[in-house]
């Protein structure tokens, strides 16, 4: 049950933190920000690695391997797409 208390703390702190971080973002950055934080949610890759690598049973390994592939698409694709969006954003800004 201890972990539930820790979790409540982490959730509370990250909600305040999330609010402070996102509060005053210009509208042009909404989509890149969404894409960038989407890439962070690919952190589930870390969990997938331990499922795929620790030999529990056949099914856990299969699930873990699919999860690794899916989460890697999320991470690599997410960061690259965000970078492309922001690169264009910069060009637009300097052209003005």
């Amino acid at each position: 049950m201890e972990i539930a208390v820790y979790l409540a703390f982490i959730l509370m702190l990250s909600i305040f933190l999330g609010f402070e971080l996102i509060n005053k973002v210009p509208a042009t950055l909404h989509t890149p920000l969404m894409s960038g934080s989407n890439a962070i949610s690919g952190i589930t890759l870390v969990g997938a690695l331990t499922s795929a690598g620790a030999e529990h049973s056949g099914l856990a390994t299969i699930l873990g391997t699919i999860a690794v592939a899916m989460a890697t698409i999320n991470v690599i694709g997410g960061y690259m797409v965000t970078d492309r969006m922001l690169a264009m954003f910069k060009k637009k800004g300097s052209a003005k």
Partner: peptide
């Protein structure tokens, strides 16, 4: 929480919270 991995908990909560606030905005 299910697999007891702290970075998943922290990063996930961060995205969960900032995502809902971004949605609001």
């Amino acid at each position: 929480i299910a697999i007891n991995n702290i970075i998943l908990i922290v990063a996930g909560a961060l995205v969960g919270a900032s995502g809902i606030i971004l949605t609001q905005i």
